[in-house]
Write a protein that binds this DNA or RNA. Structure first.
Lengths: 110, 110
DNA sequence: CCTTCATATCCATAATTCATGAATTATGGA
DNA sequence: TCCATAATTCATGAATTATGGATATGAAGG
């Protein structure tokens, strides 16, 4: 993950519809969600959501897959990991005490 | 962390100077850096950096502290944690296998 | 084929964001 | 009090981004 990709990723998540869509896909997990279902869940117009999903795609934060007439979207964990890794790079250069509580906090019980 | 705060945080990190400044402060850790040093390190004008630091401040991603004539900035780990927690909320609803590798990948060796 | 459903793309307008220069505030030292 | 340094604030214009309507693509079914 380089600076440009990271910027694209953060930029993608800095808009309400996209952040909501991404979180929806994170909780949906491997099941993913169709574009239509996402649009309905978020109550946004079809073309607006489509444009926003395209932004998330280009940022590498989601993947999609055609299934007949529907297109199913999934959160891309690799992309998310790359972004977070870039952000936290060298966060604990010799200072585990800075990094450790953050990690623990993110384990969300699993 | 609510949606609005998360959006503010991601938006703050979606601009090159701010993302660079934030990463600089993450690696600087408890030592922090003065506004002037950050401006010099990133080669940006004082007022431009000041405006960008203000955005990071408002997003809760950095803190600052006056020390005589200089103002020292620090990465705010609580803010960062809040943002990441919001993003990953319910990422592993019953599916630890999705969340675990991500966490491990972020432990960056410490 | 023709229709219908699901989604994407094009285009114009509205809204937002950004860097910059000029001016301002705050601090410490002479 | 005066000056230099450190940093912030403000207004502006340029560039980017979001949105909605209309239209296009692509797949399934009759």
């Amino acid at each position: 993950m380089d600076m440009t990709s990271a910027l694209t990723a953060f930029s993608a998540l800095s808009q309400q519809t996209r952040l909501e869509a991404f979180r929806l896909l994170v909780t949906a997990g491997d099941a993913g969600m169709s574009a239509g279902d996402i649009a309905e869940a978020l109550d946004v117009r079809q073309n607006t959501l489509s444009a926003n999903l395209a932004v998330l795609l280009q940022a590498g934060l989601v993947r999609n897959q055609r299934e007949g007439r529907v297109i199913r979207y999934f959160a891309d964990t690799d992309g998310m990991r790359g972004m977070l890794g870039f952000l936290l790079q060298d966060c604990c250069g010799g200072r585990p005490e800075l990094c450790q509580p953050l990690i623990e906090d993110l384990t969300c019980g699993c």
